[in-house]
Simulated scan of single mutants.
Amino acid sequence: MRAHPMVGDSLVAALLLLADLLLLVLDATTPHPTIKPWYVTVPLDVAVVVPVAFRRKYPLSSAYAIAVVGIAHSSLQLGISSLAAAAIALYTLVVYVGRRMALYYLLVQLAVMAVQFALDWGDNNWLTLVLIGLTFAFSWLLGEFVGARRAYHNEVEARLHLLETERDQASRIAVAEERGRIARELHDVVAHAVSVIVVQADGASYAVRSNPDLAERAVQTISRTGREALTELRRLLAVLRDDTTGHPRIPQPDADSLVELTERVEQAGVRVRLTVDGTLTGLPAGVSLGLYRIVQESLTNTLKHAGPGARADVRIHREGDLIEVDVVDDGAGKANALVMVERELPGGNGVIGMRERANVYGGSLDVGPEPGGGWHVHAALPVGDEL
């Protein structure tokens, strides 16, 4: 009915027509019929109910078509369709068009009925007037109620659409801010690499004749550092920008700082077990920084959402040119559903930041609740030289 409103309106029109035809049949069985012959009654019955089927598509046209045909239908007293169709038309105008047009239509109907009653006044006309007044009043009130509900639902849908737009904008802003922060950090890494190259090149130029072995080691250092710097520049692409904040540059942490990080988190009340399978030495500076930040953000979320008393297990596994990081906490005994609700609250920019860090290096990030409670963060970062 809601998907195809015209089907429902056609059904209502058919029921009204059936009611009038039933009155015609019953009247024909009496000794003294009062209703006009069928070749007059049936066309008027059909004409007065057909606009009901189109009331939502053409509300004004349907309403006044009912009013025009209803004059003849009600004057000949052919049934209840003219009054019922007029009431439905009034309700439709209140809901879909507006109070002003509905009021004009109501005044037209009342004027027509006043003329009809003035030309043919009877003893039972007062009862008919009360019935007509109650019918129109009910139609108007029902239209006001349904119209208010439609307006409320439209307002709710508009607000939901606005909230979705704001949420998308907030996500984009968070991604942009995190990319800017990553760009500044990697800018420091690249600047450090270039500084090393310059220093090593100067040293090699002085030692190339007096100490060839030292010069050769310097050149090897330049080659390794330069390739790492070029790899970082390639990863940056369009997100690289200058740091114009004016803040002094601070050396960034790396994978070697994970032990210190876990100790700080333990001091805050979360018991952390760090397991490293493989060596983390020789990692590109950006990858090492990204690894550190992902673990840091995961443990920060554990401390924030699970609270003191929780346990976290940090497992780092390096195999060839791939590093896999798993950070699992027990949620401090909280139920799985509660953990999910807490960590999906608006403003989850930490997960966005971790995912952006992984994407910068061609890696991936998966986060989600554990079956028995708690939270699981899994990240995979490629380490291989891209050149």
Rank of each mutant, 00 (worst) to 15 (best):
S10H: 06
L15I: 11
L16W: 03
A19K: 01
A19P: 01
L23Q: 13
L23K: 08
V25P: 05
V25L: 13
L26G: 10
D27R: 03
A28Q: 09
T29G: 13
W38A: 15
A47R: 00
V52E: 01
K57P: 03
Y58C: 00
G70P: 00
A72Y: 02
L76A: 04
L78H: 01
S81W: 00
A84D: 06
A85F: 00
I88C: 08
I88P: 08
L93Y: 02
Y96F: 15
G98S: 05
R100L: 11
L103D: 07
L106M: 11
L107E: 06
V108D: 08
V112N: 07
Q116M: 14
A118W: 10
A118E: 01
W121G: 07
W121H: 07
G122T: 14
D123K: 09
D123A: 13
L129W: 04
T135P: 04
F136R: 03
F138G: 15
F138E: 13
L142F: 11
G143H: 02
N154L: 11
E164M: 12
R167H: 12
R167K: 13
D168S: 15
A170V: 05
A176P: 06
E178G: 09
R179M: 07
R179T: 07
G180H: 09
E185A: 15
L186K: 06
D188H: 13
A191W: 08
A193H: 13
V198D: 15
V199D: 15
A201R: 05
S205F: 08
A207T: 13
A207D: 15
V208Y: 07
R209M: 13
N211Q: 13
A215Q: 03
Q220I: 10
T221H: 09
S223C: 07
E228P: 01
A229T: 03
A229Y: 06
L230S: 08
R235C: 06
L236Q: 04
L237W: 14
V239I: 15
L240P: 02
T244N: 10
P248E: 14
A255V: 01
L258C: 06
R264I: 04
E266L: 10
T275N: 12
T275A: 12
L280H: 03
L280Q: 04
L283R: 03
L283G: 06
V287Q: 12
L289A: 11
L289I: 01
Y292K: 08
E297A: 14
N301Q: 10
K304R: 13
H305P: 06
H305W: 05
A306G: 07
G307A: 08
A312N: 08
G320I: 06
E324F: 00
D330G: 04
G331W: 01
A335N: 12
N336S: 12
A337D: 14
L338R: 12
V339H: 09
V339C: 11
V341T: 15
E344A: 14
P346A: 06
G348M: 06
N349D: 15
G350N: 01
E356F: 09
E356W: 08
N359D: 15
G362I: 05
S364V: 06
D366I: 13
V367I: 04
G368E: 07
P369C: 05
G373R: 02
G373M: 01
L381H: 04
V383N: 01
